[in-house]
Design a protein around this nucleic acid. Structure first.
Length: 573
DNA sequence: GCCGTTTTCGGCCCGACTGTTTTCAGTCG
């Protein structure tokens, strides 16, 4: 049995919750949460590191004690510190903390004084008016708790980046249209381009806070005003998404942008650096003895603490601060670097547009090439192509390439990787293609070992070019299948195979933790939209953003190459 | 519980808003 990084993180976070309710040293709590975040973000399996006898305490943020606890968890599947804590504090109480307005202190008080353990207990007590009688609580708090209970059961899940983008852009446009406001930016995890966002943090410059806040809460999509002040307000939109608007004067804009972009761990790191230099950093600026030093731009803030500017996508405290100090930040890939798309479908299978429409749409986006990669026959739901139909499509592509001057269509296929690792079409036809995107669609349930062997076997086929959506996860819907990604990377590097970073907003796969791994292991990445319509080609933007989160440069991405150079990379040695 | 140009003890980021408070605790980001 393998204990996954996510499981280690879950248990540490749970322990942190329980310790908080117990009123433990807040810095100790932070250490657990910090460790959970570190482990979750690691590309390598911590369990395997333990098996190899590596010293986990060498990881920054994990000391002797936590290293021992991880070891215990990996070897026994259990964490005795957590079990001890569960004897002292009912574990259900951590559920209560998910409710807005309820933190560790109030949860503890509810438990001690009213015996409330579960959401159901809480609902009953609040409806009976028992909660407002407690010291420190009141009528309004009780009402908010009831509203929070309602909210928790109705939504609860994080919003996908693509959905958040539509909502955020309309709202930002609305605010930009208001009088007396300038520079509206959506900060937070949205600006870091995390795959999902919990809420939206908007930041704007204004001299007339009261007026702007009045208009903000008037935004037609606002369902509820959670709080309202002259510098900060919070609303909940009809979609359930919570939005914070923070107003600052112009000279504080950069400092506030740093602060509200986060991540929290990154901020702590930057503020600590500031403190070491005798400076104080808050959302209003960088100060020396209460004297304003910098803050109008983010760049000025980073400069004053001795760092190069750090792109928002990197601000996760996973080494970017050290890299900025050493002048070794990567030059991240941009949309301008992208010269084509290598994974797209047509109406020959489950796409909506014709070959010609897809070609036209790609040319309109300034691309040099577009690979047509319809499904292979095993994917019957999509009416996958057999050998005969694929050959027919290849003829159409030849004809279209003869006709079109401004774009080249590449011949491809999204080939299903069968259960035994064979490719779904014979090499005799695959050899005629420029590339294949080989993907797992069925038998996701195989063991980690078998799944890994299956995919490596597929890579043995000389016609295998790119591994499509390498983990098969769907955000908020489906977990990744079990696979040893490190082994896959190693084999891919050896064979000259590439990894897809699928830009579909539900996929973003390679997932976050594996992108830097690809780079570190010398595997090139193809950012592909997996477009099923002409509009879908615009997902490229999201794919590039996700690549940036993985520290990837133009050189790490194959579809930044001109066509001749790309062709060389597509050919297996 | 972690960490070290404050170096094995004693720090650990900082401020806004709300509600129940007579001066502040709790929560959130």
């Amino acid at each position: 049995m393998t204990v996954h990084n996510a499981e280690i993180a879950r248990q540490f976070n749970l322990l942190a919750d329980l310790l908080e309710i117990e009123d433990a040293n807040p810095f100790r709590v932070r250490a657990y949460r910090n460790a959970a975040r570190i482990v979750e973000g690691m590309a390598h399996s911590v369990a395997e590191m333990v098996e190899r006898g590596e010293d986990l305490s060498e990881i920054y943020g994990i000391g002797e004690d936590l290293a021992r606890k991880i070891e215990e968890l990996v070897k026994t599947g259990e964490l005795s510190a957590l079990q001890d804590e569960e004897k002292r504090v009912p574990v259900q109480l951590t559920e209560l903390m998910r409710i807005d307005q309820l933190g560790p202190r109030r949860v503890k008080q509810l438990y001690r004084e009213l015996g409330i353990k579960t959401l159901a207990d809480l609902s009953r007590a609040a409806k009976a008016g028992k909660v407002q009688e407690l010291e420190g609580f009141g009528e309004k708090t009780e009402a908010k708790i009831l509203a929070g209970l309602e909210q928790l059961t109705s939504s609860g899940r994080r919003t996908k980046l693509s959905e958040a983008t539509e909502i955020a852009e309309s709202l930002a446009d609305y605010l930009r249209g208001l009088e007396g406001i300038s520079k509206v930016t959506v900060a937070g995890s949205y600006r870091r381009r995390k795959e999902t966002v919990g809420d939206l943090d908007l930041l704007a410059v204004t001299e007339d806070g009261a007026q702007v806040m009045n208009r903000f809460v008037d935004y037609p999509e606002v369902e509820e005003v959670v709080s309202k002040g002259t510098t900060r307000s919070t609303v909940r939109l009809r979609t359930g998404l919570q939005v914070d608007l923070r107003l600052v004067p112009g000279r504080s804009y950069g400092a506030a942008l740093c602060y509200f972009t986060g991540s929290k761990a990154h901020n702590v790191e930057i503020r600590t650096r500031a403190a070491q230099r005798g400076l104080k950093l808050n959302e209003y600026g960088l100060f020396k003895d209460n004297e304003y030093v910098a803050g109008r731009t983010e760049k000025s803030v980073y400069e004053q603490v001795g760092l190069a500017y750090i792109e928002p996508e990197l601000r996760e405290n996973t080494g970017e601060v050290e890299a900025a100090e050493a002048g070794q930040l990567p030059e991240l890939v941009t949309m301008d670097d992208i010269r084509g798309d290598l994974h797209a479908h047509t109406n020959a299978t489950d796409g909506h547009a014709t070959l010609r429409e897809m070609a036209r749409a790609a040319a309109d986006r300034g691309y040099e090439y577009l690979a047509i990669t319809d499904h292979s026959k095993r994917v019957t739901m999509a009416r996958g192509l057999d050998e005969k139909r694929l050959r027919k499509q290849l003829e159409s592509i030849d004809a279209l390439n003869d006709e079109l001057r401004d774009i080249t269509l590449l011949k491809g296929c999204e080939v299903d990787i069968l259960e035994d690792g064979q490719l779904d079409l014979p090499d005799s036809v695959l050899e005629e293609l420029d590339l294949t995107v080989c993907s797992v669609h069925y038998h996701r349930e195989l063991s980690r070992k078998k799944q890994t062997e299956r995919i490596i076997r597929a890579m043995d086929d000389p016609c295998f070019t790119i591994l499509g959506h390498p983990t098969g996860r769907l955000i908020n819907e489906r977990e990744p299948y079990e696979v040893d990604m490190e082994a896959l990377m190693e084999e891919a590097a050896e064979r000259g195979c590439h990894m897809e970073l699928n830009a579909q907003p539900s996929r973003f796969d390679l997932i976050d933790a594996h992108r830097r791994m690809a780079r570190d292991m010398g595997v090139k990445v193809a950012i592909c939209t997996d477009a099923h319509s002409t509009d879908n080609l615009d997902y490229m933007r999201f794919g590039v953003e996700q690549a940036r989160r993985g520290w990837l440069t133009a050189d790490d991405i194959i579809n930044t190459r001109r066509l001749p150079a790309l062709r060389k990379l597509l050919r297996r040695a």
